[in-house]
Design a protein around this nucleic acid. Sequence first.
DNA 1: AACTAGCTCAACCGCATTCCT
DNA 2: TAGGAATGCGGTTGAGCTAGT
Length: 200
Amino acid sequence: MRSPCCVNRGNNNKGAWSKEEDQKLIDYIRAHGRVCWRSLPEAAGLLRCGKSCRLRWINYLRPDVKRGRFEEDEEDLIIKLHALLGNRWSLIAGRLPGRTDNEVKNYWNSHLRKKLASMGIDPDNHRVIHNGRLHRSHSSGNATRSSIDDATNGLQNNSKNGFRDADDLNLDLTISLPSSQRTGSDHLQNTASPTLLLFP
DNA sequence: AACTAGCTCAACCGCATTCCT
DNA sequence: TAGGAATGCGGTTGAGCTAGT
């Protein structure tokens, strides 16, 4: 098997980041840009592994990261995108400017799962439960580009109405490109606007 | 005031994927 | 083309906070 990406040197810090560590990371990235995460800690004078630095930067230190509670329209969008994409948090976060995958994932697990459950919707598969019967509202994990755009556009339209039952989206859900047909530049998980096949 | 249970979210871990030689 | 290195992703953990008793 592969060796772990971060060799534990024995003196690596773990746990919460201090202000000094944050500042070192910010200063280094401002001065040098995002270079090699693996070599960054040593170059920046941090006793952290590269993965830890990357996570800290992406989730909390990036200048464009949006902090604070989720708006109602953001909640609505997350629910719709989760119904379309499943637990592909980075893809979902890519549709929410300034939000990170970790933040969306945490918010889903701590708030939205309960919210859906209280509405009689299974948060895992987005099926609506009526009189003990399950009704599929979305095909979790399968999505068209237009479906995702529909959900994203709803950000402007639905905030007044709150969450609507997913059934009324009337979406046509179909599988995306297989991974073997993807290239590095259009890799589904790395783009805010994923490339997906449309099946009319 | 002290204790406990539940909740939130920052951070870690292991695996998958992509990149590079 | 193969294999190792680097990066990214999603699941999980646990420390700290808050509400309830």
